[in-house]
Amino acid sequence: MAQALLNGLVSGFLIALPAIALSLTYGILNFANFSIGAMITAGAYLAYFANATLGAPILVAAPLAAIGLGLIAVGVEHGVYRRIRNADHITLLVASMGVAFVLENAIRFAYGADVRALDVAVARPLAWHGLRLNHEQLVIALAALSAMAIVAVVLTRTRLGRAMRAIADDADLAEVRGIARARTVDWTWALSGALAALAGVLIALDGIVEPLIGTNYLVSVFAAAVIGGIGNPFGAVAGALIIGLVEEVSALAVSTTYRQGVSFIVLILVLLLRPQGLFGVARIRR
């Protein structure tokens, strides 16, 4: 049980990164970015390209993947979303599905559907009072926590963060107060891309690289963001921890094949009992 809780915590940290990314873009652009799964995959492949193809160490490859996917996300914003900014959010959601198909198939085109692995050394797990913590799990926990801390500082302590929260609160008023909306949206996508890429690298570290690794996390990520009260990045972290823990603990009782089903059940329960999400009350909408 303690082992399941530990695994769940690590898994929650991992889900938190794309869940934050999803919440950030939802808050500012008011649409659910369905391509978040494909973005995670793209991040893993960018790291694979730098690490296995070019031979860069993973500590170099991971930041390169984050920067690369950040740039791609800004490119997609300019090429796709900005052109349909005034369409309703269903149109934007469908557009993001299209982006997901393009990203995934571009990856298949370049690397095929083969299962690959990053070029990293395998280390012994750490053991402590009968609990086992993989080296990868430790890296995931530390990297995800650092990324969350950076996002929290950016959101609450920097001018960019205030601009992002102001636009999420009221986009027209933000413009009236002198905030350059287009530039802030670009930065939001860059940050969102970097978080998704980091998640992709961490997932790949713990397992394999294949064209569906991100999409496999799609339900968990959406569940985490919605449970946290979508649009609220801090709630998304709490939602991710809940989903991570529930998925791992449920694996003690039911087969891990049903892991996503369990996320779905939690999501449905939360939506039935608290449609605004567990942490949705903090947002004042009157």
Partner: peptide, 25 residues
């Protein structure tokens, strides 16, 4: 410009609202 309604950022603090009024100009 002071709009009639929706004229403050409701989910930000009063201090942050004032700061946003200044820092982007």
């Amino acid at each position: 410009y002071v709009p009639q309604e929706r004229n403050v950022f409701r989910n930000l603090t009063i201090g942050e609202n004032l700061r946003i009024g200044h820092e982007f100009i």
